[in-house]
Write a protein that binds this DNA or RNA. Structure first.
Length: 494
DNA sequence: AAAAAAC
């Protein structure tokens, strides 16, 4: 870990931004022996989850050895705009937060110090003139804390009006972010509300009371609806956050909704601040975002540095479709003691099919996708988060942002490809991989490829794109090969 | 021929 942040002058403010100082002060000795580095977003889940875990007979409570090392996000490139100097916050004390918020960070969240992305981005978020921020950082590196803390620190607790808004691509992510915000803001008295369908319990939008909560976190449709019905006042809104921002501003994502919401706020309050966070920004989206958001501060990670080193990737060529089920059955379900697993599939139909096939063989699996009722979705996700289930089959509804720290294994039952072109969906691949190895934990990914079709080509392109090493398991039904792979990944003992 | 949100 040498110098961590390099400065790059922007074209528009090249002379002044040279003075912008960002000092990487996270250069502590790398050879800490007894003391584990604990940093923002690392929850002390061993304590917290012990109740749920103790009810389980088959669930492993073993944690990999070298957890809690910060992911390799030491190559964040910072581009500042304007002449405000920013100093990296090596401690939360450097941020001038309220005592209530500090208490939330230390007592509730049990944080000790900011992660790298937090150290760099938080001063940019909090320091006037509150410039826009486009921030890329690795999966599991603590982005949520950045924008949640950003929102909490900018809200005036004495003003009972919406002041901060966060838009998320899925209801699950909105709920998850709300949980983090409630916890972190526990002592601040700041109020918050989730805006997802049916969160207003039978009361129609037209008849509900206007939002008085100070922070609103939700999905695009519901937020738009609340705004259309004048239930979400924008007069005091000063900060707008896009979680998974590249998806929220992609043409095949939520671009129209997002732009609409931005324009509506901008009309009322031109000085509002926009925060865009994601682990991925492909060139197309990056170009668009840079044209859309005026003179932002920017943090980017090089594509080749984005793959998580702590998560080992493998590929298996399966002769036929049914063989993929055999792999899951014989090589994964029978292991039982490597933590939780998410199996990603392409479609809702295959989610049901894979679920049914495994259930008929007597395995205890669950599945989620967007056509299920909200109650069922919530129930399945909660069971998984509570460690009551071990293996979850999911569509890409959970590909992004889903934070379950005990997920050690990700299986790509289907490779992620773009709908229109059949080309690899590099971003989705990276996000799926990022469901394992949260906060530097060890993990593994098995990519199940079909022999015929373009799976192998898709895989090769992904390997090249990220410069990632994906080892091949030569014979698809060799138990030994899977075991040595898992040992290599650090998930199985010798 | 799609995941997602929601009209």
């Amino acid at each position: 870990m040498s110098d961590t942040v390099e400065k790059v002058p922007t074209a528009e403010a090249s002379s002044s931004s040279v003075e912008a100082s960002i000092t990487g002060e996270n250069t502590e000795p790398t050879t800490t022996t007894t003391e584990k580095t604990k940093w923002g977003d690392v929850e002390d889940d061993d304590e917290e989850e012990s109740d749920a875990v103790s009810e389980l007979k088959y669930l492993s409570i073993k944690e990999p050895e070298s957890i809690l090392d910060e992911p390799e996000d030491s190559n964040i490139k910072a581009v500042t705009s304007g002449d405000t100097p920013y100093t990296s916050a090596s401690r939360f004390e450097d941020l001038n937060l309220s005592p209530e918020l500090m208490k939330g960070l230390y007592v509730e969240m049990k944080f000790e110090k900011p992660s790298k992305i937090q150290a760099i981005s938080l001063p940019m978020i909090i320091t006037p003139p509150h410039k826009h921020l486009i921030a890329q950082a690795h999966n599991g590196s603590g982005k949520t804390t950045c924008f949640v803390l950003g929102m909490l620190s900018r809200v005036d607790p004495s003003l009972r009006q919406p002041q901060a808004l966060c838009i998320c691509p899925t209801r699950e992510l909105a709920n998850q972010n709300m949980e983090v915000l409630q916890k972190m803001g526990k002592f601040t008295g700041i109020t918050a509300e989730v805006a997802v369908p049916e969160s207003n319990q039978g009361v129609t939008t037209a008849r509900r009371a206007p939002v008085s909560a100070q922070v609103v976190i939700g999905t695009p449709g519901t937020l738009k609806k609340w705004m259309a019905f004048k239930k979400l006042g924008l007069n005091h809104l000063k900060i707008l956050v896009f979680d998974e921002a590249d998806h929220m501003l992609a043409t095949d994502g939520f671009r129209d909704d997002s732009l609409r919401i931005m324009k509506d706020i901008e009309r009322v309050n031109p000085n509002y601040q926009v925060l865009l966070f994601s682990a991925t920004f492909n060139e197309t989206v990056k170009d668009f975002v840079q044209r859309t958001v005026k003179s932002p501060n920017q943090l980017f990670v090089k594509r080749e540095d984005l793959a998580l080193d702590s998560v080992k990737q493998y590929k298996v060529v399966c002769p036929k479709e049914q063989d993929k089920i055999e792999v899951i059955k014989d090589q994964i379900m029978e292991l039982g003691d490597i933590g939780q697993t998410i199996i990603f599939v392409k479609t809702k139909v295959s989610a049901s099919k894979v679920h049914k096939a495994l259930a008929e063989m007597g395995y205890d699996v669950t599945s989620v996708h967007g056509s299920m009722s909200q109650e069922d979705r919530d129930k399945i996700v909660k069971e998984f988060k509570d460690c009551l289930t071990q293996v979850l089959i999911a569509t890409d509804v959970l590909a992004r942002g889903f934070d379950q720290q005990r997920v050690n294994l990700v299986v790509n039952y289907n490779m992620p490809t773009k709908y229109e072109t059949g080309e690899p969906d590099y971003e989705v691949y990276l996000h799926r991989v990022g469901r394992a190895g949260r906060f530097g934990r060890k993990g593994a990914v098995f990519n199940l490829l079909l022999d015929n079709g373009n799976d192998k080509e898709v895989m090769e392109k992904i390997e090249r794109y990220f410069g990632a090493q994906v080892k091949e398991i030569k014979s698809w039904n060799s138990e030994e090969e899977y075991k040595s792979a898992l040992k290599e990944a650090g998930l199985l003992d010798e």
